[in-house]
């Protein structure tokens, strides 16, 4: 696939690296001092309370929002320092699943995927048809290719959008709240699908989520963005954050608890009440 070649890197290099990134809406600071790297085949979570700037960070990673300062490096190439042609080149190496699925409503599911393939690859028509059937079967929508997005349920839209995102075999997938608005079973199926995609394609995945079961099931690494201090306050997998972070917000979030009004003493880590046991987290049923 052409798209896959854009940001393929040696296994030693991170697929994506963020250095001292700051985001602003006009004069309002959203987040600053964000630095992290996403290794190949890693599932990386962007975590934080509502309104802390998770989706905004994702938008700046994909080129939809200009950061106030800092660097976003794809395979070592600085995205925001690059010219428009190279930016486009780098961006096509990413597959994006939007929070609202963002399927083009005037097209069928097949046409949605076909447009992505025509834009990202040099495949001929017959090869595109084969690839569309392949990705639709993968996400369990092989019978819904000629449906329009309006005729699909919320979960099916997410699966269809995921099929569109992976069609060009991108080395990096960005998922904005993939399981938002889904019932627990659909959410669980989507988690299993994401793990399957990672294991079959080797793509790195960056995802934004509030769903604790999904976070504990999927994330190998991550960053916790704080809405008050406007900077990251924890790094690592959700379990590492819970075990090692001294931040009350992180503990309250990971345990699904209300944050006390006064600043409490750092919490000592214990197992999360809601998080599944490690051996259960990777054992979702298939879609």
């Amino acid at each position: 696939m052409d798209a896959a070649s854009q940001i393929r890197t040696p296994s030693s290099l991170p697929v994506l690296e963020v250095r001292e990134l700051a985001l602003r809406f006009g004069s309002r600071l959203v987040q600053e001092r964000m630095s992290f790297a996403v290794a190949p085949r890693t599932i990386f979570a962007i975590v934080g309370v509502s309104g802390c700037g998770k989706s905004t960070l994702l938008r700046s990673l994909i080129g939809l929002m200009v950061p106030a300062s800092g660097q976003v490096l794809y395979g070592g190439a600085d995205y925001w320092a690059a010219g428009s042609a190279q930016r486009k080149h780098l961006r096509t190496g990413c597959g994006m699943l939007f929070q609202s699925a963002a399927l083009w409503s005037s097209m069928t599911v097949e046409q949605n995927i076909d447009l992505a393939l025509r834009q990202l690859t040099t495949l001929g028509e017959a090869q595109r048809v084969t690839r569309i059937a392949e990705v639709l079967a993968w996400v369990g929508l092989e019978k819904f290719g000629n449906f329009r997005p309006a005729d699909l349920s919320g979960g099916m839209k997410k699966h269809a959008a995921l099929a569109r995102a992976i069609a060009g075999a991108p080395p990096l997938l960005l998922l904005d709240e993939p399981s938002a608005g889904l019932d627990p079973i659909s959410s669980c199926n989507l988690d299993a699908l994401i793990l399957d995609i990672r294991s079959r394609t080797g793509a790195a995945v960056i995802f934004v989520s509030h769903e604790l079961p999904s976070l504990f099931a999927l994330a190998d690494d991550g960053i916790f963005l704080d809405a008050d201090s406007k900077r990251p306050i924890a790094h690592g997998s959700p379990r590492d954050m819970l075990a090692h972070s001294q931040e009350p917000t992180v503990h309250a979030f990971m345990r699904r608890q209300a944050l006390p009004a006064s600043a409490p003493a750092p919490v000592r880590a214990t197992a999360p009440a809601i998080a599944p046991a490690p051996d259960q987290t990777r054992a979702h049923p298939g879609p």
């Binding site: 096509t92 994006m96 939007f98 963002a102 447009l115 992505a116 834009q119 990202l120």
Partner: peptide, 17 residues
């Protein structure tokens, strides 16, 4: 405007269109 609010325009831009 509906496409904009549904992020459909963003999806086009991400594809480099």
């Amino acid at each position: 405007a509906t496409m904009q609010s549904n992020e459909e325009v963003d999806a086009l831009e991400v594809l480099g269109m």
